[in-house]
């Protein structure tokens, strides 16, 4: 029996198909990342597995039961912050523990244990309004770590966190989760998904590819990946880069651009020369190992994150 079994799942909102025949099997103890851009259906899929929403058709099972019958096994952490800012960290945890049926003294004890696990003991009695984003998310993850929880569903848990806070968050996750716990991570951040043992790429309501991070990169990105950072971003720069990339495909990133080539060493020199001739200053250029975001781009020609600037 799989911890999570999804078969031919469909869901539509106002005749717009959000999930289009999704199939997914996650064995017990696996850390599975579901990666896709905004609007791909990943949050809707997580909501259905967590029994927050219902599907239009298809099968969803958590340890062989319907999600509504397996709520006691699921620890769901939605994307939005749900802890009450007017209560302290401890009061929030006592609230959720009492909701699950623990007595007042048991809930207090459990809250203390959870606060130790997520390293929030010193801030336990401060109001959540005074917590940083990372602290608040750790508190909310703690509500999903109560005894008996076997499946942890985290929806974009690192949104709004800086890279340091993200690393700290996943470090904490490694320490606090039971090895037998199944973790489903919903994310659009490739570096977060890299930590998973298996990744599913979702786009337009369908899982388009699945595998370990290395398998996905080997299978879908056979070219060299060159990152280029210019002094300015412009259509002119884009035009030069398209001439040097396979199929004219150029991905934008926060640092600059990425192009793909089967002969990276030669193309690297050609790109520098072409940009120089076009009057563009190259700040940095290097060959980089492919990322899951490159995999997604090669499969769909879409970027996972909107790039500003």
């Amino acid at each position: 029996m799989f911890a999570i079994h999804v078969e031919n799942l469909t869901k539509a909102y106002n005749s717009q198909r959000v999930l289009d025949g999704v199939n997914l099997d996650v064995p017990e103890g696996e850390f599975y990342a579901l990666m896709g851009p905004n609007g791909s259906g990943k949050t809707t899929l997580a909501s259905i597995i967590a029994a927050v929403k219902t599907q239009d058709s298809g099968i969803v099972e958590v340890y062989g039961k319907k999600p509504t019958q397996a709520k006691g096994l699921i620890g769901y952490v939605p994307q939005e912050n749900f802890s009450s800012p007017k209560l302290s960290g401890r009061e929030n945890l006592v609230y959720f523990a009492t909701l699950l049926g623990y007595s007042r003294s048991q809930a207090n004890q459990l809250a203390t244990q959870m606060l130790e696990k997520v390293e929030l003991c010193e801030e336990a009695d401060k109001r959540v309004a005074k917590y940083s984003g990372g602290m608040r998310k750790r508190l909310e993850v703690a509500t999903a770590l109560f005894p008996g929880i076997k499946v942890l569903i985290l929806d974009e848990p690192t949104t709004g966190l800086d890279p340091g806070a993200r690393r700290s968050f996943f470090g904490m996750m490694q320490e606090v989760t039971d090895r037998r716990a199944t973790i489903i991570l919903i994310t659009h951040i490739g570096s977060d998904a890299e930590l998973a043992s298996r990744v599913g790429l979702i786009d337009n309501g369908r899982i388009i590819s699945e595998g370990t991070p290395d398998e996905l990169k080997r299978k879908h990105v056979v070219e060299d990946v060159i990152t280029v950072e210019t002094a300015v971003k412009s259509d002119s720069v884009l035009s030069v880069l398209k001439d040097h990339s396979i199929d004219g495909k150029v991905a934008e990133s926060e640092a600059g651009y990425k192009i793909y080539s089967r002969n990276g060493d030669k193309v690297l020199a050609d790109v520098v020369r072409s940009l120089d001739q076009a009057g563009h200053k190259v700040m940095r250029i290097e060959m980089a190992p492919p990322t899951l975001e490159d995999v997604f781009f090669r499969l769909t020609e879409k970027q996972l994150r909107e790039v500003t600037g």
Partner: peptide, 14 residues
């Protein structure tokens, strides 16, 4: 409802 609390509560056995 505006915070994620309603979604969290619906996912719990309450």
């Amino acid at each position: 409802r505006a915070d994620g609390l309603l979604a969290k509560l619906i996912s719990m056995p309450i």
